[in-house]
Simulated scan of single mutants.
Amino acid sequence: MSSHPESPFGNDLDEIDRIIIDELVSNARISNATLAQRASIAPSTALLRTRSLVERGILTGYHAEVSLPAVGRTVQALISVKLRAHDREKIDTFRERIPALPEVLSMFHVSGATDYMLHIAVGSTEALRDWVLDNLATDESVGHTETTLVFDHQLGNRGPLPVND
């Protein structure tokens, strides 16, 4: 049995993989030379190991983090959505339409009394009200919504869980 937990992809992550992932999560723009130095491996090995993580589906992309207030999206909200009926066609339409809207940051399908949680960012509380009215209250598949304003948002650990030896 490996001392490292197996990923859901059936790929064991060793210590070097974990270092590479942690460094890339911390700074996706890190140079390969610096990544190699921090992982105590050769730059060619760092490049091969990073490519392997991508090919294995463990690293799924690199992105720029945008300051939402800096681009005019100063109001964030979490909106719980309960669907009126669980008709597959309406669910599929909802699942395709909502995340494609430019205001939606994330959509989660959840258990419990709520069917979906939406994380959106808009320019004002008036824009938030209008967005809910235009996109949810008028949707025939939506039975109930509840909006919660986000005062602050802190990202947590986006990499693998620590290994307990």
Rank of each mutant, 00 (worst) to 15 (best):
D165K: 15
R56K: 09
E89W: 04
D130A: 12
G159W: 00
V66M: 09
R49A: 06
L101F: 14
R51M: 06
L133H: 15
F151V: 12
T125L: 15
E23Y: 10
E103A: 03
T147R: 02
S106Q: 14
L118Y: 03
T50S: 11
R88C: 05
V71A: 00
E15R: 05
S3C: 13
D152Y: 01
H119D: 13
S67P: 04
N135Y: 12
L13Q: 05
E126L: 05
S141L: 07
E65D: 12
I21P: 01
N164W: 11
S80I: 05
N32G: 03
E23S: 07
R158F: 13
F151P: 09
T50V: 12
D130Q: 11
S80F: 14
F151Y: 15
A33G: 06
F108I: 07
L155A: 14
S106P: 12
S52Y: 14
S80G: 07
M1I: 12
H63A: 14
S67I: 08
K90H: 12
N27Y: 10
L59K: 10
A36W: 15
P8R: 03
E6V: 11
H153M: 12
H63R: 15
D12T: 10
A28Y: 13
R97W: 11
V122G: 04
A28H: 10
T147A: 03
D92Q: 11
P162R: 02
E103G: 01
T125C: 06
E15L: 09
T147M: 04
L149I: 15
H153E: 10
G10N: 02
P99W: 01
I91Q: 01
L136V: 02
S52C: 07
H86D: 15
R38A: 12
D134T: 07
Q154G: 12
V150M: 09
